[in-house]
Computed example of a mutant assay.
Amino acid sequence: MFKVIGEMSGKIYVTGTRADCFRELNKQYPYKKQQDTVYQEVLLVVKIEKEVV
């Protein structure tokens, strides 16, 4: 599992498999050729370790 976190805000944008995270980001923030930036801030992709119960 992975989560995508905003570097400055700490906002969690997406949680899921790596592919799911990038798929959802692409849906929320589609790339347009006229744009210099796609996302509102730098995004960090962080691997989540499984919790031991």
Rank of each mutant, 00 (worst) to 15 (best):
V52C: 11
G16C: 08
R18Q: 13
K50I: 03
K33H: 07
E41F: 12
Q34S: 14
Q34I: 12
V14A: 10
S9A: 11
D20P: 00
K50L: 08
T17L: 04
V4W: 02
L44S: 06
R18V: 05
Y13R: 02
V46D: 06
F2W: 15
K33Y: 06
P30F: 07
K33A: 14
V53Y: 11
V52M: 12
K32T: 09
I48H: 03
Y29Q: 03
E7Q: 15
F22Q: 06
V45W: 01
D20A: 15
N26W: 00
K11R: 13
Y39K: 06
M8G: 00
I48M: 14
I48P: 00
T15A: 13
G16K: 01
V38F: 01
I12S: 02
K33R: 11
K11T: 12
Y29V: 09
M8C: 06
K3L: 13
I48K: 12
V52W: 06
L44Y: 04
Y31K: 15
T37D: 09
I12A: 03
D20S: 13
L25V: 11
V45G: 00
I12F: 03
R23Q: 14
I5Y: 00
E49V: 11
Y13A: 02
I12V: 15
T37H: 09
K32V: 08
P30H: 08
Q40E: 13
Y29A: 07
L25P: 00
G6D: 07
D20F: 06
P30N: 08
L43V: 11
K32N: 10
Y31G: 03
K50W: 00
L44T: 04
V14G: 01
E7T: 12
Q35L: 14
G16F: 03
P30A: 10
M1Y: 00
V14C: 13
V14Y: 00
G6S: 11
K3Q: 14
V46P: 00
V4S: 04
K32Q: 10
P30L: 09
E41W: 10
V52I: 15
T15H: 05
E24F: 00
D36R: 08
V4A: 10
M8W: 01
I5E: 06
V53F: 11
E24R: 07
K50S: 12
C21N: 04
P30C: 08
Y31I: 15
L43W: 04
Y13S: 02
T17Y: 02
K3F: 08
V53M: 09
R18E: 13
E7I: 13
V14I: 12
T37F: 12
E51L: 12
P30T: 10
